[in-house]
Each structure stands twice: as structure tokens, then as C-alpha cells.
């Protein structure tokens, strides 16, 4: 028996919206640890890894490990029938071939259940090695989305160059080229700044707001890599899950684009770089 209840159903809805265009069919692995997925897109260029830890659910029961193969477009169709403030419960029998999604509104006076047929999916599971990345960039997820969107109107690929002080995004296409540089926010800017006002005396003004870039860079080695914008734009569908996005880069390795899901886990996207022929 597998049973998982999430109070904030909108999280599950958002997760599905962020991955359903990248991956068609995927196996969800339900274990005592949580509800996880690892799947590649059909061209084997990108991979999504999702983890929703059991401790993040309001109720979680998994008597034995269950693999549930689902068509993500169909799953998304079902989850769209849940309101954002609904509680969502997923249920499956150990040997069953359906998963049940149950939606409950906050007043608990409307309860819906949707059954979806499961499928047998033959997939390769890839071992992702633990890697020390040469560069880690943390920035506003909205800004990252904006940059990827803006650059994709000029070119098809983006070159990301990380130095200790900045991260630079470059593209070029038939109509011209574009460079966007985000400077690392200095430590002083990230901290609370005290502002004196005549009326209130001392007032604390927090500058770490959604305005500005709030770019944090952890660098071992400067790194420059090129990626297809089409995939990055797809990853950015996860933007509403987290205020910040974390990019991890190393020479000639796939980039990791991570969105944390508060109190629950993460959705991570891996994208293979464009390399010299």
C-alpha cells in the first residue's frame, strides 16, 4: 500500500507542469524515503531528477517499494482538476495497475477522486556521480528565467561564463548578439542594511528583496560552457517552485539546474553541454 497526502496540492501541480513537456512517460519510485523520479527526455540530452521526501508529506505510508509508471501529460491533466489550495492524496495498491488522486478542498466539503491507469515503462536508470563542481551560482529564479527567455529571441544557444565576480550569459544569432552580465552581489549588499529615519529613529531595511539579482558565486575554477536554450527555457517552468535557482557547472560536464521545494526536496535538471566537434 502506498499513500501520500500533501496539504499544499499546488506544489505537486507545479512540479508536474515543470517536467511534463520534457519527459513523456516516467517511473515514479515510491519508497520509505519518499516519492522520486528520474527520467531523460527522448533525445537523451537532459534529465530530470525529482525528490519529494516522505517527511514533507502530511501523511505518508509506503509498505514496500512501488514503481508507478505514468504518462506525465495524463497525470498533469488529472492534477489540473485539483484547485491550488486543495489537499492531494495519491494512493496505490502494491500490485495494482491504477493510481488514485484524491482532491479535498479546504472546507472539506468537496472530495474528488480520479483514477489513472499505470503503465509498464522500460527505462534506463542512470547513476549520477557525486561531483565537486567548479562553479556554483545561486541567483533569482525569475531573473534566470528572464535571461533565458530574452536570449532565446536572439539565438539558440547560450554560453555561460562564470568568474569569481560575475556570471555572463552570451548568445548570437542571425540578427546579432547579446551579452548579459550579472555581477556577484557583494556580502554587504546581501546583509540587512540599517537606515536612519527622522521619525522612527533606527529602522531595519532589508535589501535582500526580490529586486535585483542577489547573485551568489562559489568558484573553484572559472568555467565557460555552452547549452541549448530550448532546454533551459523548459527547466524554467519550475520557476514558481522556488525564489532562487542554483546552477552548478564544471568543464565538459552537464549543468545542474536545481529548484528547491520548501520542506520537501528538489527538482533538478541536468543538461549535456554543446561541445566542439
Amino acid at each position: 500500500m502506498f499513500e501520500a497526502r500533501i496539504l499544499q496540492g499546488s506544489i505537486l501541480k507545479k512540479v508536474l507542469e515543470s517536467i511534463k513537456d520534457l519527459v513523456t512517460d516516467a517511473n515514479f519510485e515510491c519508497t520509505a524515503n519518499g516519492f522520486a523520479l528520474q527520467a531523460m527526455d527522448s533525445s537523451h540530452v537532459s534529465l530530470v531528477a525529482l525528490m519529494l521526501r516522505s517527511t514533507g508529506f502530511d501523511h505518508y505510508r509506503c509498505d514496500r517499494d512501488v514503481t508507478m509508471g505514468m504518462n506525465l501529460l495524463n497525470m498533469s491533466k488529472m492534477l489540473k482538476c485539483a484547485d491550488n489550495d486543495d489537499t492531494i492524496t495519491m494512493k496505490a495498491d502494491d500490485a495494482g495497475d491504477v493510481v488514485t488522486f484524491m482532491f479535498e478542498n479546504p472546507k472539506a466539503d468537496k472530495i474528488s477522486d480520479f483514477q489513472m491507469k499505470l503503465m509498464d515503462i522500460d527505462t534506463e536508470h542512470l547513476g549520477i556521480p557525486d561531483t565537486e563542481y567548479e562553479a556554483t551560482v545561486k541567483m533569482s529564479s525569475n531573473e534566470f528565467q528572464r535571461i533565458c527567455r530574452d536570449l532565446s529571441s536572439i539565438g539558440d544557444t547560450v554560453t555561460i561564463a562564470v568568474t569569481k565576480d560575475s556570471v555572463k550569459f552570451t548568445t548570437s544569432g542571425d540578427i546579432g548578439e547579446a551579452n548579459i552580465t550579472c555581477r556577484r552581489t557583494s556580502d554587504g549588499d546581501m546583509k540587512e542594511e540599517k537606515v536612519k529615519t527622522e521619525e522612527d529613529g533606527e529602522k531595519v531595511h532589508n535589501t535582500k528583496s526580490s529586486e535585483g539579482q542577489n547573485v551568489d558565486i562559489d568558484l573553484q575554477e572559472p568555467v565557460t560552457l555552452t547549452f541549448a536554450l530550448r532546454y533551459l527555457n523548459s527547466f524554467c517552468k519550475a520557476t514558481s517552485l522556488c525564489e532562487n535557482v542554483r546552477l552548478q557547472l564544471s568543464k565538459e560536464l552537464p549543468v545542474v539546474v536545481q529548484y528547491l521545494i520548501e520542506d520537501m526536496g528538489y527538482v533538478r535538471f541536468y543538461l549535456a553541454p554543446k561541445i566542439e566537434e
Partner: peptide, 14 residues
């Protein structure tokens, strides 16, 4: 020109 690499070369199949 740069070509798109595949993930298969980076991660081990299990």
C-alpha cells in the same frame, strides 16, 4: 561549430 553532447557519456547506466 559545436554539437550537442548526450547524457549517456556522462552518467553510468545502472
Amino acid at each position: 561549430a559545436k554539437k550537442q553532447s548526450s547524457l549517456a557519456g556522462f552518467f553510468e547506466k545502472r
